[in-house]
Computed example of a mutant assay.
Amino acid sequence: MLTLWNHGWTASSRWTFAGKSPDGAEVRLPHDPVISLERDPDGSPSTGYFPGGSWQYEKTFEVPEEWRDKRVTVFFEGVYRSASVFINGDFVANRPYGYSEFTAELDPYLNYGDENTIRVEARSHDDSRWYSGAGIYRHVWLHVADLVDISLDGVSVATSEFEADTVIATVETEVRNATHSLQTPRVSHEIISPDGQVAATGSAPISLRPGETGTCRQRILIAGPRRWDLDAPNLYECRTRLYLETGEETDPDATVCFGIRTLALDPTHGLRLNGNTVNLRGACVHHDNGPLGAVTIDRADEGRVELLKQAGVIAIRSAHQRMGR
């Protein structure tokens, strides 16, 4: 079970926080505490004259007794920067870089059947050539999984062997076995076409020793593939399920989207998409959302892409770090 975990947090200053959210005030993630600070005319122009500082976020949550036989993980899409994660005062995880995703495994530190408190510390200083913002500026997710489960982001799809009326989708699924016994679950896939119909299916077992993580690879034939193109961005879905030997489903539906297209690059034709030469018209885009700050707001990101596309842009370079999901 993967749950968006953006509500119920409080934000406070460890040193200099003086923005719109006072110390200990409830905030909804994503949150950028820097954008509401007063600018300093003696500050650095590289960061828009905004000051730095240190902040901490806290959230108290119930952990039911039945989670004792689960794996409990918090997934952070981005915390700027030098993030440290604590559970009930115990150190759990650290991520120095402010633009990469990371996870914190909570199981050893939880009090089952009781309230627990997670604390995330972050800091920002004169350390950028652009406005970086700060804090938990991207989404946070809570992942509660069975001891035999599909890893987070554990499903990937690649297409190959293109024919006039068929294509091969190679699906790789990373499966974890945290039990103390040999497990042989079955990994099943449904490929859903752009019009919502089942285009293909596949299923295969995977044997895992205690504590082992393995990859199940399946090649699935898709008939009558609809290509992804600039003016026809057709997307397929791969819906993956995991079943124990008893037939019990141990993981909720894991779904990834993918497009079917060919890419080729050579000195004669340049870049070709589905066999047609494409002249790239690109833009260099930073991660922030202007007056909204560094927060990743899904609709704001979508709107920016729509405006760029209206302007004729067909390629984006993220500057100077990975973009949000």
Rank of each mutant, 00 (worst) to 15 (best):
V187L: 05
V187N: 06
V187R: 02
V187E: 06
S188F: 00
S188A: 05
S188W: 01
H189R: 06
H189Y: 11
E190I: 04
E190C: 04
E190Y: 07
I191K: 01
I191F: 12
I191C: 03
S193A: 15
S193N: 09
P194V: 11
P194W: 13
P194T: 05
D195G: 10
D195K: 15
G196C: 14
G196D: 14
G196A: 08
Q197A: 09
Q197Y: 09
Q197W: 07
V198Q: 07
V198A: 14
A199W: 12
A199I: 13
A199L: 09
A200Y: 12
A200K: 06
T201A: 03
G202M: 03
G202R: 02
G202T: 06
G202A: 14
S203L: 09
A204S: 11
P205D: 13
I206F: 00
S207R: 00
L208G: 04
L208C: 14
L208R: 08
L208A: 10
R209E: 01
R209I: 00
R209T: 06
P210Q: 03
P210M: 02
G211Y: 14
G211H: 10
E212M: 10
E212A: 06
E212L: 13
T213Y: 04
T213N: 13
G214I: 08
G214P: 09
G214Q: 09
G214M: 06
T215S: 03
T215M: 05
T215A: 04
T215Q: 15
T215C: 02
T215E: 01
C216A: 04
C216P: 09
R217K: 14
R217G: 03
Q218V: 07
Q218D: 13
Q218L: 10
Q218G: 08
I220A: 00
I220K: 01
I220G: 01
I220H: 00
I222R: 04
G224H: 09
P225Q: 06
P225A: 09
P225E: 07
R226Q: 14
R226H: 10
R226M: 11
R227V: 10
D229T: 11
D229W: 05
L230F: 06
L230M: 12
L230R: 10
D231W: 08
D231V: 14
A232E: 10
A232R: 14
A232H: 09
P233L: 07
P233Y: 00
P233N: 04
N234R: 08
N234Y: 10
L235C: 03
L235R: 12
L235D: 09
Y236M: 07
E237G: 07
C238P: 02
R239P: 00
T240M: 05
T240C: 07
T240D: 01
R241V: 12
L242H: 07
L242W: 14
Y243G: 02
Y243C: 01
L244E: 11
L244H: 04
L244A: 13
L244F: 03
E245L: 04
T246G: 08
T246Q: 06
G247M: 04
G247V: 09
